[in-house]
Design a protein around this nucleic acid. Structure first.
Lengths: 192, 192
DNA sequence: CTGAATTTTTAACATATGTAAAAGGAATTG
DNA sequence: CAATTCCTTTTACATATGTTAAAAATTCAG
């Protein structure tokens, strides 16, 4: 296998060993698509039945709160991006997925993937490990937002995910941190 | 099967169908224990290798932030309670589990459970569904805390989980909402 | 390259929430 | 039942963050 998917599958193997057979089956479900900067990958309203991975570029999940966008998640290379609240509850999603740069993503139908799980147990394990990792990350975010000040959260983001602060417009970073753009700007000024 | 575990297993069946065989195997791993009010179920520092379910009573997960307790989660009857950040990363937990009333919990060794997964695929599915549900719940909590005011969060908690406000000391509810006790008290006064 | 659009910063003011201390209530224990 | 401890509310004040508007800086499109 020497496709554009190779680095992604290598990343998978670090999480869960997968048989060659499984990789072949999985590859057949992968659809690779390009999105241009600010392009919509999935819109608000549909029930999520697709799992994405970012091959290159950056994507985000966001939703509207009182007419203004709130960013919930940023995905970089090899990251899983999925609207879990919709996929796991089979209800329409209030969230959208958008490319923040020209990006290439691979999409996998969740139904087809679940079908594969019947025979390829290692893929089911892989998927569940990915979900567990996302869950742990969300728990960490909750902790931070629950009891750190805005400035502490920004400092922590700088340390742990400098790529977010560097590559992503600050207006998106602000809502990701749970604060306004103005407040983030103030914090950045006070640190300098 | 006519044990104290019956209602819990019935709740499981609503999430994922399980064979009689699997139920039997699972039952053999279950250890039922009673805890008295405010008793410690698991302390801070150890790596989590145990999964709990509340059979009766209430339990919480909390951690220390600058010497004061922050409550992260409340578990009621049939709820899963587990320190996921530790279980899924194999690192020592900074969190503790405590009974808030006289409670009965069942504990299952995660290693033993994972062992069962090799033969009882339905149990693995069940466990992963439970993790997915916890993940979705955590996402919801993150959304709330990210962009609702303290008062809105309290109102929402009243609507969605009135049992928390009714049964649990407000000092614990406050940190669960990401605010101080004083602030919660103020909000309650302003609503009356 | 230039003008327009977008993003970021700054300013001034409003408000929600934090902090500390004390008082009032409720629950627990001997 | 009394006494102690714990929990909740109240008060007064401090501060972080929100809001609105405008200015400055940056990016984008023709």
């Amino acid at each position: 296998m020497k496709s554009i998917l190779f680095p992604l599958f290598e990343a998978f193997k670090k999480i869960q060993s997968i048989s060659l057979d499984s990789i072949g089956e999985l590859e057949r479900l992968c659809e690779v698509k390009s999105y241009s900067k600010n392009g919509e990958i999935q819109g608000i309203g549909a029930t999520c039945r697709t799992i994405y991975f970012v091959l290159s570029g950056v994507a985000r999940i966001y939703y509207l709160k009182d007419g203004t966008e709130v960013t919930e998640y940023f995905a970089f290379e090899n990251d899983l991006i999925v609207r879990a609240e919709s996929l796991f509850t089979n209800t329409p999603s209030k969230k959208a997925i958008q490319a923040l740069e020209d990006s290439v993503l691979v999409s996998i139908s969740s139904e087809a993937l679940y079908g594969l799980f019947e025979k390829q147990h290692d893929l089911e394990r892989l998927f569940n490990r990915l979900v567990q990792n996302s869950y742990v990350e969300t728990l960490r975010r909750l902790e931070n937002i629950q009891f750190l000040t805005a400035e502490e959260r920004y400092q922590k983001l700088l340390e742990e995910h400098p790529e977010i602060v560097q590559k992503i417009p600050l207006k998106y970073v602000a809502s990701f941190l749970g604060i306004t753009q103005v407040s983030l700007s103030r914090i950045r000024a006070s640190i300098r």
